[in-house]
């Protein structure tokens, strides 16, 4: 498993988490490779369909990061996300896709260090889980 290089998507909302990721970068915090950051306007722009598409096409892990509850630029966008992701995780589990491959967390613009921590821990978790079995499945 040592040569397993997970490929991971991190959806970051423009107003908080992307700024947090930026801060982590500017502060030159050590960050694991293979995390592809996708900037979205709000965590609620990350429709569960996109996450489903990513995991069924073999992405090893998907991070969804938004503003803390109460701080969403669109007021309740992250409430939507907070309701959707846990349900999506359960549905994926029922189909045999490990829900730990999906993670939702909140990172503010000031939390460069938290961003680094969340990403690093997630990459570790995915390393432990190994490659997404759907990588090898041809439909």
């Amino acid at each position: 498993m040592t040569d397993f290089k997970p490929s991971i998507l991190a959806f970051c909302c423009n107003w908080c988490s992307y700024a947090g990721a930026d801060l982590a970068g500017v502060s030159r915090l050590q960050m694991p490779p293979n995390v592809h950051v996708i900037r979205v306007m709000c965590s609620a722009s990350v429709k569960p369909e996109y996450v489903i598409k990513a995991v069924t096409q073999g992405i090893d892990g998907v991070l969804v990061l938004g503003c803390h509850i109460g701080d969403c630029h669109y007021l309740t966008g992250n409430h939507r996300t907070a309701k959707r992701i846990p349900l999506l995780q359960k549905i994926l589990d029922e189909a045999g896709i490990d829900s730990r491959r999906i993670k939702l967390d909140w990172v503010s613009a000031a939390e460069g260090e938290k961003y680094q921590k969340v990403v690093t821990e997630f990459v570790e978790e995915i390393r432990r889980l190994g490659p997404n079995p759907l990588r090898e499945v041809r439909f």
Partner: peptide
């Protein structure tokens, strides 16, 4: 076609997972 390829069958796993989510 963003979620389900226009051509070919079977449509893949996303088709069924999206349905499951939408109907939940």
């Amino acid at each position: 076609c963003t979620f389900v390829a226009e051509k070919g069958i079977p449509p893949g796993m996303a088709f069924h997972l999206i349905r499951a989510y939408h109907l939940s």
